[in-house]
């Protein structure tokens, strides 16, 4: 299998779909001439031309709405957000329009649109540029949300998102763009709503997505050295959640730690935890632990930023807690 970087996998997903379906276009800041702020769309302007790879001014509210409007009359936009911090400006169009039109029109309209870009912290960017905002989106009915952690998942899930007839949010991460992994040759997709066991284990279930999944895999190796065998579950899709796979794992390990970069209050991990208590209470041998970002804006200083984010140390401590180990 070829080894690809995460950004190349996203690029392949978009390019392959765009070759097949002329109604798909990519729009966002610096996606064309600059080859993407993080080079995800590298070479795409050259291949598809400026009508299909569209550079915009700094107008997130406007071009998110443009995406929704174009989707209402038959196009299939991929709207790239330079980061999710700026996507907040487009959130009105997502909440009030993209997710309402199908239902509000009694099923007459649909909004087949992908809204994607990097989410979360990316080293010393301070509080306005470091936010993990997936829970805001996952709150909203009518939206689907994916958060792939590997190049293979990124390509397969983004393809499914592009083909989906609903608005789909794709959470990427700056720290993931350069990570490499095997990506199958040829055509494949990964279904939205299907979790994946990234590491099998029997003592504890770690649940995480996107960049935090990699942290959990790394931490699982540390835990293995201490004789703790962690299973690592990647929901991959945050809405709808694949509770079947998660509950299956809980049945096996009886202990759960959920790791999320975002703030704890109302986080996606709180939702997952709620669903585990609801569907798997009898299987639990300990209360669920959540390791989240600290409940504060992310500071610039190196030591404070590190302290504000989940870490292996925090995950290990939570694992020991659910295992009642000192």
């Amino acid at each position: 299998m070829p080894i690809l970087a995460y950004r190349e996998a996203l690029n392949q997903a978009m390019s392959e779909e765009m070759r097949k379906d002329p109604s798909i276009f990519l729009m966002g800041e610096e996606v064309g001439f600059y080859d993407g702020a993080f080079k995800v769309s590298k070479g795409m302007l050259k291949e598809f031309g400026p009508m299909r790879v569209v550079d915009t001014p700094i107008t997130e509210a406007g071009f998110t709405g443009v995406g929704v409007g174009a989707a209402m009359v038959g196009l299939r936009p991929i709207i790239e957000m330079m980061t999710f911090n700026f996507a907040i400006l487009g959130l009105d169009q997502i909440i009030n329009n993209a997710t309402k039109l199908h239902s509000m029109s009694g099923g007459q309209l649909k909004v087949p649109m992908v809204f994607r870009g990097p989410n979360g912290s990316a080293k010393r960017l301070a509080s306005q540029h470091s936010q993990s905002l997936e829970s805001l989106y996952c709150h909203i009915p009518g939206l689907k949300a994916i958060a792939p952690s590997t190049p293979k998942d990124a390509k397969g899930l983004l393809k499914s998102a592009i083909r989906d007839n609903n608005p789909v949010i794709c959470f990427e991460a700056q720290a993931l763009y350069g990570t490499k992994g095997e990506v199958p040759d040829g055509e494949y997709t990964i279904p939205i709503g299907k979790a994946d066991i990234k590491r099998e284990g029997k003592d504890v279930t770690l649940i995480a997505w996107s960049k935090m999944l990699l942290l959990c895999l790394q931490t699982a190796d540390f835990l293995a050295k201490e004789g703790i065998d962690a299973e690592v579950v990647d929901p991959r899709t945050l809405r709808p959640l694949d509770m079947e796979t998660i509950l299956e794992s809980v049945k096996k390990t009886h202990r759960v730690v959920i790791v999320e970069e975002a703030w704890p209050y109302g986080g996606v991990s709180a939702q997952i935890s709620d669903r585990i208590y609801y569907g798997g209470l009898d299987d639990l041998d300990a209360p669920i632990e959540r390791v989240c970002g600290e409940d504060c804006p992310i500071p610039y200083a190196k030591n404070l930023e590190e302290a504000a984010l989940p870490s292996s140390e925090k995950i290990i401590a939570a694992v020991k807690k659910v295992l009642y180990l000192k």
Binding site: R124, A126, S127, Q128, H129, P297, P299, Y300, A301, L304
Partner: peptide, 8 residues
């Protein structure tokens, strides 16, 4: 206080 950095 080190919380903002260059941009803030």
């Amino acid at each position: 206080k080190g919380k903002g950095g260059s941009m803030h």
